[in-house]
Design a protein around this nucleic acid. Sequence first.
DNA 1: ATCAATAATAGTAACTGTTACTATTATAAG
DNA 2: CTTATAATAGTAACAGTTACTATTATTGAT
Lengths: 139, 139
Amino acid sequence: MKNIKRPQRRSKQRQTILDELKKLTTHPTAVEMYEIVRETLPNISLGTVYRNLEMLAANGNIVKLKFGTSARFDGNSSRHYHVRCIHCGEVNDIDELPEDFVKQDFDKLGGYKIVGCKVEFVGICPTCSEKNINEVSQV
Amino acid sequence: MKNIKRPQRRSKQRQTILDELKKLTTHPTAVEMYEIVRETLPNISLGTVYRNLEMLAANGNIVKLKFGTSARFDGNSSRHYHVRCIHCGEVNDIDELPEDFVKQDFDKLGGYKIVGCKVEFVGICPTCSEKNINEVSQV
DNA sequence: ATCAATAATAGTAACTGTTACTATTATAAG
DNA sequence: CTTATAATAGTAACAGTTACTATTATTGAT
Ligand SMILES: [Mn+2]
Ligand SMILES: [Mn+2]
Ligand SMILES: [Zn+2]
Ligand SMILES: [Zn+2]
C-alpha cells in the first residue's frame, strides 16, 4: 500500500521517459528504460526512472505489466492485450480478442500456441467505494 | 528463467500445502500459506513452502497470481477469473465472464466498480516451439 | 525388514527488484 | 529576481524470493 503522488511540476526526466517509452512497441523493464533514457540524459538516476514510471502508470499515461520477475511498461495505453511466452518470457501485443473469447477455445493467437489465459479485472470493492481514498495498493 | 523440476517423490510437506490450499477460497501469499501449514507441520520451512508452491503451479495443480507486491496462490485451478481492488488489494473470484466481454463495456462485476481489465494469454512463441525446452520463464 | 541412492527438507545466506531517504537542484508562481 | 518546494541524483534499506548446504525422508532393490 503505497501513496503515489500526482506530478505537480514538469521535469525533463519524466517527459523523456514518457517520450521514449511511447516510441517503443516493446514492453521494457525499468532498467531497460533507464538504459534508453540515459542516452538522452546521462545523469538520470534509476530511482527517478522507477518513481516516474509508477507516476505515469498511476495517471494512466502508460501501463504497468506484472508478468515476469520484474515489471514491464507499455507506452501504448489504449485497449489491447498481451501474450507471454512461457519459455523465453517474450511479451507481444494482441490487439483484438477472438470473438469466441468467452468460450475460451482458442489454440493459436499472434503465432503463439496458447496454453492459458488470465483475466484480471481492476476495480473498487464495495468497502473501499464508501471511503474516499488516494492510496493505491498496486498499479 | 528458472528450471522448475518435477516432483519425483512424495513428501507430506508438499501434500499438506496442496490440501490446505485446496480448502481455501481465498488467494493466500506464500507467507500466509506458511502460517497455515505450520499448524499441521510446525517445523516446515518457508523455503519449502515457496519451492513447493512453484512446483505445484508449474504442474497445474494450483495457480499463481501476480497481482500485488507478493505472489498469491489459488487452489482452484479450474477456469475462472479475478477482480482486484485498486485500493485495498483484495482479490475475489469472477466465475463467468460477462457475455459482452469482447466489447469491454462492463462497469460492475461481483459488487466491484470496474475501472480496468487486463488479459494475459500464456503460450509458446514461434521460436520456442521449435526447441524442446523444460525451462520456464515464469509460472 | 534392511539397505543404498538420492530427492526433499530445514535453516539460513544471498540475491534482485523496488522503495525510501537526504542533501541538492530545478521548476514555476508571485 | 526571489522564494517555496517539487523533483532529482545518489545511495541505503527493504521485501519477497531463490540458492546453498548439511541433514532427513522416500523409494526401489535386495
Ligand atoms: Mn502492449
Ligand atoms: Mn480464484
Ligand atoms: Zn519463446
Ligand atoms: Zn477495497
